[in-house]
Design a protein around this nucleic acid. Structure first.
Lengths: 224, 224
DNA sequence: CGCTAGCTTGATGGTACTCAACCGCAGTGG
DNA sequence: CCACTGCGGTTGAGTACCATCAAGCTAGCG
């Protein structure tokens, strides 16, 4: 299973939500920055709609996209005093901020929740591990197919045939998968030629043959 | 700063240690298994001496080494109900077991420690991120140089010239760095030819030129 | 002595990167 | 209205790097 989100904790009815109501909601437009590497952590964020992109930029200009976070995902979790990477929006995106202070307050009052949070952190670690494996053990085609597959399975209940959003550009996909934009493009073209996917318009894609797609993503079941 | 250990929390005087005394200490010999993927988590372990190796084995026989854990490091942290990977010893290794129950007890009594633990989890996430970047953004030479560099800086206060332990075999290094044993060997040979390191005997290495080594780890173009 | 595991070295080929050109589209401004 | 421009994307040619396959070497050990 590909782990696209950094923390698809999917905390069922988010135990902290009741304490926050609808406060702390921010709306970001495309490329608006949620936080930057090195800034002091203020807490974490739950994505209400839209997509967030977490990434690191290095001295030599190389960029590594850590994760994409979709509706229901949590970002900014598991940092220390300072954020460890940049995070911005890929389009209009609504997030709910959960301040650190209120988190500490919750833990103090209900220590059993600490276990839940630690589990959530563990989930993030597990996702990073899966991603590590993807980055060093899979071919370009396997990575691209796996990426589209996880987008499709996450997007809707009935993924085959319908046009699905592909909110990130080729450069984002490339920097997430550890490839170049040319390699991403070539493999997507190849998937289209093989009638596995469609590319109806910029920013969208559609799955034509789901089983073939997961075949090409190959070797990522690890059902436990 | 390569992150070799999965959780170099370096919990200075480990706040839980006082509550455990010298109990819960286990001694493992080479290849003795500490825990396996899928087993129920019993807690976590602090390495007192020796080296632990955490890894996953896949259906196709491929192995990915997640991390090496040295003295002072913690493993088994941030898993859920079940361990997410296998863990065994590279040589004679002493660990102190910290049972989950006592961890919960501690958190319940001293909720402010929960924050520390979450930070530790964050550290593990950060290490995984660094490792991800290493695996997809660096050349074979950068990976090998960076690996040896972090071993050297971790090993002692005076790393230049002295023989340092290299407790893992080429296959372990290869599976950790996402390379083959041949590529690891070739690059170590090349580093020796460039007078950057020495390979006095099996299981040891020595740094001859520390600044050159870190140059090569960073991808500064020296000789191409 | 021969065996084996760990390691090195060589030859070869494939995958993905680099460099480069080009297309379609959306703004933009004369 | 139409050139001009920039961005995102695609395609092609050439190449570098690393995996693969295959020997051979060394040290330890029965």
């Amino acid at each position: 299973m590909h782990a696209i989100s950094s923390a698809s904790v999917n905390a069922t009815p988010a135990p902290w939500a009741s304490r926050l109501g609808s406060e702390g909601v921010q709306v970001l437009e495309s490329h608006d920055v949620l936080f930057r590497e090195g800034e002091e952590t203020t807490g974490f964020y739950e994505v209400l709609s839209g997509v967030l992109r977490s990434y690191k930029i290095f001295a030599d200009g190389r960029r590594q996209i850590i994760s994409f976070a979709f509706e229901g995902d949590i970002v900014g979790f598991g940092h220390g005093e300072d954020y460890r990477f940049d995070c911005d929006a890929l389009g209009t995106t609504r997030v709910r901020a959960v301040p650190k202070a209120s988190l500490l307050h919750i833990v103090r009052e209900r220590p059993e929740l600490a276990g839940k949070l630690l589990e959530a952190a563990g989930g993030e670690v597990a996702n990073m591990q899966d991603h590590s494996i993807l980055l060093c053990r899979k071919t370009a085609m396997e990575r691209v197919a796996g990426f589209l597959l996880s987008l499709a399975t996450r997007a809707s209940g009935k993924p085959v045939g319908t046009a699905l959003p592909l909110p990130m550009i080729r450069a984002d996909i490339a920097d997430y998968l550890g490839l170049t934009i040319e390699t991403v493009s070539r493999n997507m073209t190849r998937l289209r030629a093989l009638r596995v996917i469609d590319l109806p318009s910029r920013g969208t894609f559609a799955v034509r043959n789901l089983s073939k797609l997961s075949e090409m993503a190959e070797g990522e079941e690890t059902l436990h």
